[in-house]
Design a protein around this nucleic acid. Structure first.
Length: 429
RNA sequence: CGGGGUGUAGCUCAGCCUGGUAGAGCGCCAGCUUUGGGAGCUGGAAGUCGCGUGUUCGAAUCACGCCGCCCCGACCA
């Protein structure tokens, strides 16, 4: 992609509205624009990251055996009256009437809809377990949206729902998700700490929230150093042991009663990006989601639900990965892998060589943003640092003369000179 | 919803107290120069001063009402 043709409205100064660093950087880097309080448009650069995050989530859901569906964002109030949550939910739920004056709502979550699908389609215990997921926009009319995309009213969420015949099955489903979540966040270069959580309005009695570590996180967390050493990708991962490991927010943490020896106790700040619940038969009972069991009796199915804040993760990733110059994308979620800089667009040799490299990178399947603008070197460097692509390939008059390009690592700032062929080799898959 | 703040050009902000034909920097457009860390010169475009009502000869400025946005708190992925 050529930068001269890319829709990338950069800002030199931070808009006054943006308070936290991820919000400032997302606006400055042209990733999002606010339409209304807590409601954002995603521009090409932000959208590219959102899609990459979404794709990692999707792949890990598929690996865990879940199947993707897509449920409506507009739902009839009737269904929520059936579960009893229409009254319980409060003003966070945006309600309105359709043209026939039927009460409708914008879905803040989808337990009712998915349970309705299940009860209409599944009859036998032989069809269990099931685990359905979607990646869909939710709307919660927060009293006070803030922190940009981290706490919007409209947000993209991955939510999935498990259906099992009995508690043992439900627990297997829960543990399966537990590991899937650890893998998902790890793939994004994040350290996720699972913490025992109170089950909120959604109900249930087995629940963990997943906090990722970022210096600017909302709450302080304390945890066993073991979390940093565990291989979350291992097939024989001991979930029970993981659940026993110490992890607590600062309100829960009592230094005098902490079971972890001081040298193994880590602490940092956390941002909640995921939450998993087991809630038994709460919705299946209310909505009549039953299957015929092995002995011919109706059995109310056991359910769990599992959420990941996909759009929030984009903000959280920036909170965890930035410096004073801008964003530093982990490779797994970067909107482009390489930023190709032509330092002197007025020099024909430089331009010919850079354009040639752009074509070759493209042919090699390396996602590249090519800064072909006729701007000064300072502007181009500043742009690349701001938007945070993992690697910069710099072509300048000096290097062209010597037959080399520079490859710069955004995170470390290290620059290595190499021949164009070596560079292509370095990035080709 | 309670408390606080704010609204003037795309962005950051001055002007408001003390009423008199709307400003700066950055960005944008044109031209020339420049080119290894957010360039220089010249010229130019760009604002219903959030909206409404009122006071006044005259309102960005004063009064009243409304709206948006932001911050703190209670709530949340």
């Amino acid at each position: 992609m050529r930068l001269s043709a890319y829709f990338l409205p950069l800002l030199k100064e931070s808009p006054a509205d943006a308070q936290i660093v991820s919000h400032q950087l997302m606006l400055r880097a042209g990733m999002v624009r606010q339409l209304s309080a807590g409601i954002y448009s995603w521009l090409p650069l932000g959208h590219a990251v959102l899609r990459r995050v979404e794709q990692i989530v999707r792949e890990e859901m598929e690996r865990a055996g879940c199947q993707e569906i897509l449920m409506p964002s507009v739902q009839p109030a009737e269904l929520w009256q059936e579960s009893g949550r229409y009254e319980a939910y409060g003003k966070e739920m945006l309600r309105f009437l359709d043209r026939h004056e039927r009460p409708m709502l914008l879905g803040p979550t989808h337990e009712e809809v998915v349970t309705d699908i299940f009860r209409r389609c599944i009859r036998s215990y032989r069809d269990l377990p099931q685990n359905l997921y979607q990646i869909q926009w939710k709307f919660r009319d927060e009293i006070r949206p803030r922190f940009g995309v981290m706490r919007g009213r409209e947000f993209l969420m991955k939510d999935n729902y498990s259906f099992d015949l009995d508690f043992e099955g439900a627990k297997r489903s829960y543990d399966n998700m537990f590991q899937a979540y650890l893998r998902t966040f790890k793939r994004m270069g994040l350290t996720a700490i699972p913490m025992r959580a109170d089950s909120g309005a959604i109900g249930g009695d087995m629940s963990h929230e997943f906090q990722i570590l970022a210096p600017t996180g909302e709450s302080e967390v304390f945890f066993d150093a073991a979390f940093e050493e565990i291989d979350f990708f291992a097939d024989d991962l001991d979930i029970e042991r993981l659940k026993e490991l110490y992890a607590a927010t600062d309100e829960q943490h009592d230094p005098s009663a902490c079971p972890v020896p001081a040298e193994r106790l880590r602490h940092g700040r956390g941002i909640e990006v995921g939450h998993i619940f087991y809630f038994g038969t709460k919705y299946s009972k209310a909505l009549g989601a039953t299957v015929t069991g092995p002995d011919g009796d109706d059995v109310i199915v056991e359910m769990g639900s599992y959420g990941i804040g996909v759009s929030r993760l984009v903000g959280a990733l920036i909170e965890a990965n930035h410096d004073d110059k801008g964003i530093i994308w982990p490779e797994s979620v970067a909107p482009f892998r390489v930023g190709l800089i032509n330092l002197r667009a007025s020099d024909e040799t430089c331009t010919a060589m850079t354009s040639d490299l752009d074509a070759k990178l493209r042919r090699a399947g390396v996602s590249t943003l090519y800064d072909d603008r006729n701007e000064s070197p300072g502007v181009k460097f500043a742009t690349m640092e701001l938007i945070g692509l993992p690697y910069q390939v710099i072509v300048g008059p000096r290097g062209v003369k010597a037959g080399v390009v520079e490859v710069k690592d955004r995170r470390t700032g290290e620059t290595v000179e190499m021949s164009p062929d070596a560079m292509l080799d370095r990035f080709a898959r």
